[in-house]
């Protein structure tokens, strides 16, 4: 099995899930309402489960999660962005889960090495997408304050929304079709939430690339330091 799984693609998908799960895990004990503690944890657990399957396809899940350096992680810059306020977290969820749902739907139907994982995960992700859309509607069309916060959050994360549609080696998906569908879907949700699609560039100007090339934003290094510290302090130990 391992021989047929493209490493770069497995790491890209696995790291997306791992890193976003970690960020959502940071909400534990801080959510705006108790019901949302449960909801965010559910999403985080789904993603962590996906990450474990994906990383295990190409190596030892813990070695990959805990012993790689920052430059070896292949996740999107979008998912590593700090939680910010609840609006930022929801905007990140909306952008990512819409992308992930479209991508996994395609992978599930593809018959490729990721089809079994995608077929299972696509149901989970459909729920994440729904959760993000429901909250986007309520924050966008709630109070003046929530509208403004949601608008700002969508704008702030906009520059990370081009990267998901860059081709990934070994990932057999029609990225330009995905991008069209993504823009349509996100645009529709934002419109119903009385918001508009943000303006401005959707990718950075740095020609070296972004997360998929192992180039991350500064907060990511600190996130990894926290995540990996204990594991690395006890080399070879079992937990």
């Amino acid at each position: 099995m391992t021989a047929t799984v493209p490493m770069t693609a497995a790491l890209a998908l696995g790291d997306d899930a791992l890193v976003l799960s970690h960020r959502l895990g940071e909400w534990a004990g801080h959510a705006p309402v108790l019901e949302e503690e449960v909801a965010l944890a559910n999403i985080a657990l789904d993603l962590l489960g996906q990450a474990r399957v994906l990383l295990s396809m190409v190596g030892d899940e813990d070695d990959l999660a805990y012993l790689r350096e920052e430059r070896a992680f292949r996740n999107l810059q979008l998912v590593e962005q700090p939680n910010g306020d609840f609006a930022h977290t929801i905007a990140r969820q909306l952008y990512f889960s819409t992308y992930q749902h479209l991508l996994y739907s395609e992978l599930a139907a593809s018959g490729g090495p990721f089809a079994p994982l995608a077929a299972k995960a696509v149901k989970e992700v459909a729920y994440h997408r729904d959760h993000a859309e429901q909250w986007t509607l309520r924050l966008g069309d709630g109070t003046d304050e929530s509208h403004e916060r949601m608008r700002r959050a969508c704008q702030a994360l906009w520059k990370f929304t081009g990267e998901p549609f860059q081709p990934v080696e070994g990932l057999d998906a029609g990225f330009s079709g995905l991008e069209t569908a993504w823009l349509e879907s996100v645009g529709d949700v934002l419109r119903r939430a009385t918001l508009t699609l943000p303006e401005g560039a959707r990718t950075g100007a740095w020609s070296a690339g972004a997360g998929r090339q192992g180039l991350h934003t500064e907060p990511f290094g600190r996130m990894l330091a926290e995540m990996q510290h204990l594991h690395r302090s006890h080399p070879g130990a079992a937990w």
């Binding site: 019901e35 449960v38 909801a39 559910n42 729904d130 959760h131 429901q134 309520r138």
Partner: peptide
């Protein structure tokens, strides 16, 4: 709608 979703999660 949210009651339904929260119920599902909880």
């Amino acid at each position: 709608e949210f009651a339904l979703r929260n119920a599902r999660d909880l």
